[in-house]
């Protein structure tokens, strides 16, 4: 990454819930204008790190700087510059779209004219203009998330923290949502989001792979893919489940992942293992199986990187 200003930085961030170490000395540096993705299995600490960055949860140890403000010392000052969208819908379902926007605009003391102009602009972009008078509770899942984003953006924050913003959202709304995020990045907003969707992870400028409260890998999606040990083969055949049983545990096979109608097999050396696997399948009476090297997806990489520990 270019040597631009760091907007979010954590140093030795640590959090314990009783005996559980939810966050272990996490160091992160996120640059201005990035869309930075947090990925990792459930319980990896994605929500915990979001909460600490947004100032709603205090770390047990470590430092957090958001947009130049020390969150530990001045959480309220940092809150003026950031916006946080929790995983669970956090707006008032018994208030209308317009009332929610008004409320959050007032909490951030947005001047009236600016609020009206900005809310129109954001509602327009989110396709929510016709629904201003509708109660938030009566919106669809996708519309709710977009309203959450509108409320989060009403005070023009420098930093946007989104905890799994598109979970349970239909594909069309997800596309709208991402279009808004890309536009925001153009204006210099730094976005940190966690996601369970691998296609979304691929759209991020950089990713941190979290596991058991630690950052295991932190790189661009392409860089993370390169970090995957071995090579990836895709086997396309009828009955991929049976195929998985046959292939698993064979010499040179590091991992097997079922991807719909195909089987992703990670091997130590593709040139050597492709003929071996073809013979193996033939021996089981499976002919005509198509074995090719494949470009790894983020999911393959994660399974490979965390494989031994998940």
């Amino acid at each position: 990454m270019e040597t631009k200003d760091i907007v979010i930085r954590t140093e030795g961030l640590t959090k314990n819930f009783g005996p559980l170490q939810a966050m272990r000395e996490v160091d992160l540096a996120i640059y201005r204008g990035e869309i930075f993705g947090l990925v990792g299995p459930d319980g990896a600490g994605k929500t915990t790190i979001m909460r600490m960055l947004s100032g709603v949860m205090r770390p047990d140890a470590g430092k957090i700087y958001v947009d130049g403000v020390d969150v530990g010392a001045n959480a309220e000052g940092a809150k003026l510059r950031l916006s946080y969208m929790p995983q669970r819908f956090g707006l008032y379902e018994d208030l209308t779209v317009a009332e929610n926007i008004f409320f959050y605009g007032e909490l951030f003391s947005v001047p009236r004219g600016e609020r009206v102009a900005r809310s129109n602009e954001l509602l327009e972009a989110a396709g929510l203009l016709p629904f201003r008078r509708r109660l938030a509770g009566q919106l669809s899942g996708g519309m709710k998330q977009k309203l959450g984003l509108v409320c989060a953006l009403i005070h023009t924050p420098h930093v946007l923290l989104l905890d799994e913003p598109t979970t349970g959202v239909d594909p069309v709304s997800r596309r709208d949502f991402w279009a808004i995020l890309y536009n925001l990045r153009e204006t210099g907003v730094t976005i940190l989001l966690s996601t369970a969707y691998m296609d979304e992870a691929e759209r991020c400028s950089r990713l941190a792979l979290l596991h058991n409260g630690e950052v295991r890998y932190c790189d661009t999606p392409a860089g993370i893919k390169k970090a995957m040990p071995g090579a990836l083969l895709a086997i396309i055949s009828a009955g991929p489940r049976l195929l998985r049983e046959i292939v698993s545990g064979q010499p040179g096979v590091l991992g097997v992942l079922l991807m719909g109608d195909r089987l992703h097999v990670r091997v130590d050396d593709s040139t050597r293992r492709i003929p071996e696997l073809q013979m193996l399948l033939a021996g089981h009476g499976i002919t005509g199986a198509d074995i090719q090297t494949a470009e790894p997806g983020i999911e393959d990489v994660f399974v490979a990187l965390l494989g031994g520990t998940v």
Binding site: S54, V56, S83, Y84, P86, G90
Partner: peptide, 14 residues
């Protein structure tokens, strides 16, 4: 109960 507290306390309201 309704899950609105987390968002509320992430604002500058005292």
């Amino acid at each position: 109960e309704r899950g609105t507290m987390e968002q509320l306390i992430s604002t500058p309201v005292t």
